[in-house]
Amino acid sequence: MSTTTVGIKLEEQFESEQQQRETAKLGMWTFLATELLLFSGMFISALVIRTLHPDSVTAVALHLKFWIGATNTAVLILSSFCMSVAIESSRLGLQRIMVRAMLLTAALGVLFMCLKGYEYYRDYVEHMTPFLHWRRYELVGDPASRLFTDLYFIITGLHAIHLTIGIGLMLVMSWLASRAGFLQKHQNRIEIVGLYWHFIDLIWMIVFPTLYLLNR
């Protein structure tokens, strides 16, 4: 396929293809700005809890699985690279490479979730689940440590929800995009989904230091 076959179908409220492309992208960027503020509410809570109880936060951070967090960051960096491959090949009209790259992206996302699940399991085994009232809490003598432990679960949980949505989107898009003629009509959708995926990656790059790194 040559580059001339790649394009988008014009909707009735737009006058030109460029206008439609830029509109869709601006919409996605605006949405991502809202997502950033959503997560920042939690990052600021983390900072406040750290300001109020610095020692308790350090105690919790030493119980977090630093290596799993770091590995997961690397996994997401790799998945972002795969997404970039998908976007670049969609621009060139290379449909097959694009679909494979997207599936690989989703697979790396699933790998992230598996590691995350294992991390939660380790937390459970090591009694770092203070909200489960039937489990003993490891740092029971330090009530303020609960705040940061709980926040850890909320932040990673909300990120995991976003990533799950991302994986779902990626699978649906790769299914739709594997059809003939997709790139002639909806090439820009790949770029839009790509922006979302990169953004989840970006959020994790803030989550990792906020929870695991800065408090050690």
Binding site: I49, F131, P143, A144, L147, D150, L151
Partner: peptide, 9 residues
């Protein structure tokens, strides 16, 4: 999942 709970500081 306590965040604002004064019982825990």
């Amino acid at each position: 999942l306590a965040i604002f709970d004064p019982d825990h500081g």
